[in-house]
Design a protein around this nucleic acid. Structure first.
Lengths: 204, 204
DNA sequence: TGTAAAATCACCCATTTGGGTGAAGGAACT
DNA sequence: AGTTCCTTCACCCAAATGGGTGATTTTACA
C-alpha cells in the first residue's frame, strides 16, 4: 500500500487521535487532521491526499456533506464517511455525494482497513464508471479479448493516439496496430470511434 | 425504498437468521438465504436479486469470492462482502471482484443499512444513461458550440464516420469536416477519439 | 437594411488510421 | 517435441482524418 496519505476530518480530538492510531497500525500515513470545515479546505488547498476520512457532523452541523460536495467538484479524491449517523435522512444527503464507503461508529480497525482498501482499489481502477472490466466485456463477445487488446481498448477509450499508446506500452506503433486490428475484429467494428461507442453500450 | 430484494449467502444459520431480522427491521425483503455456493447459484438462476450479501467463508473455503466473480460475469448485481476476515491476503482477493462494500463482523444494523443504501445508490448511478445536452456542455466551454457542431459531436459520439454524418445531414463531407474542425477547436482536442473521451468527462 | 455569425462547399496537403500479409520469438499445454 | 496462442514487429497500400485557406449563401438580429 506504499504510503497512502490520509486526511482525517473529525471534530472530536479523542476520536481523531484514535483513528490516527488505527491508521498507523495498518501502515497508512496521516497527512493531517482537520477539526472543522475550514481547516479541511485549507489542507486540501495545500496538498491532495490519497484518501479522506470524513465525519459528517462537525461542530453541530452537517459540514461533512458540504465538504464532500466540494471534494467532488474540485479534487476528485475518494472519501469515506465515518460517522455515528445512520438515519435515512442523513444517508440520503450523504449518498448523493458518491462516498466510496460509509462506516458507522463505533468501528474496529478491521472495518477501517477493509473499507479503505476496497475504496482505494475501486477508485483507482476507474474513478467514475467503475465498469471497464475485462471479465464483463469478454462475456458479451464471441471471442475473448487478450490482455493487450484490452489494454489497447482502454487506451483508445481514453482518447490516446496509436503513437501515444506505443510510447506508453514501450512497443512500436506496428504492434499497437496489430492489437487494434484484432480488437476491432472481436468487437465487430471498423474504427476506434465505433469501438468507443460500442464499448459504451456494452458497459452500461 | 420500495421492496429491495436481498439474497443472503451465509453458511452459519444463526448469523443468516440474524441478518435476516436486521433486514426486515429496515424494510428490505429477503429473497432467499443460501448456505453454500451451489445454493446461491441455484437462486441466481431462478431470480435476480437487487443486492447480495456475501459471506466469503462458506464451509471452510473462499467460495464467496468465486461467487463474486460469477456475479460479475453473469449477473452484474451489486454485492457486499459480509465477513469476519480482514487480512490483507483475503482482502486482495476480495477487492478485485469490485464489491460495493465490505462489512466486517460483528456488525450493527446501522452498518448494514448504511452500506446497502450507499451501495445501491452508487450502483444505480453508475448504470445511469447520460444524455447529451447542449446547454450543459456549453457551460463548461469557453466558446459555445453551434447547433451543427453539437450535432456533429453527437454523431461522432455514436461512432459515425464523416461520410455517414454527411449522408445523414444531407450535406457534403467537406461541410462536416468544417464543423468538426471548429468543434475540435472549441473542445480543445485534436481528434474525434479525444473529443469522445473529453465528452465523457464533461457529462459525468 | 446592414452586418455579424453560421452554414455550406472546394481544394490542397500531411498525418493517421485501417486492412492485408507475413514472420519470428516465447509461453503454455499435450 | 509438437502445437497453439499471444506478442512483437515489418512493409505496403488505401481510406479516413486533421489542418489551412478561402469563398458563397443563409440566417439572425439590431
Amino acid at each position: 500500500m506504499a504510503n497512502i496519505q490520509v486526511l482525517i476530518v473529525e471534530d472530536e480530538p479523542l476520536i481523531a487521535e484514535d483513528i490516527c492510531e488505527h491508521l498507523s497500525n495498518v501502515d497508512y500515513s496521516v497527512l493531517a487532521i482537520a477539526y472543522n470545515k475550514s481547516q479541511a479546505l485549507k489542507v486540501l488547498e495545500q496538498q491532495i491526499p490519497d484518501m479522506i476520512l470524513l465525519d459528517i457532523n462537525l461542530g453541530g452541523n452537517l459540514d461533512g456533506i458540504e465538504i464532500a460536495h466540494l471534494i467532488n467538484q474540485k479534487y476528485q479524491v475518494p472519501f469515506i464517511f465515518l460517522t455515528s449517523y445512520a438515519h435515512k435522512s442523513i444517508l440520503d444527503q450523504a449518498k448523493v455525494t458518491w462516498p466510496m464507503g460509509y462506516i458507522v461508529k463505533p468501528f474496529s480497525e478491521k472495518d477501517l482497513f477493509s473499507s479503505i482498501e476496497i475504496a482505494l482499489y475501486n477508485f483507482s481502477q476507474n474513478a467514475r464508471p467503475h465498469n471497464l472490466n475485462l471479465e464483463r466485456i469478454n462475456q458479451v463477445l464471441l471471442s475473448p479479448l487478450t490482455e493487450k487488446e484490452f489494454q489497447a481498448l482502454q487506451d483508445i477509450y481514453q482518447g490516446l493516439t496509436n503513437k501515444q499508446m506505443a510510447e506508453k506500452q514501450f512497443v512500436t506503433v506496428n504492434t499497437i496496430k496489430t492489437h487494434l486490428k484484432n480488437l476491432y475484429d472481436k468487437l465487430e467494428v471498423g474504427s476506434r470511434s465505433e469501438a468507443m461507442a460500442k464499448l459504451r453500450n456494452l458497459i452500461t
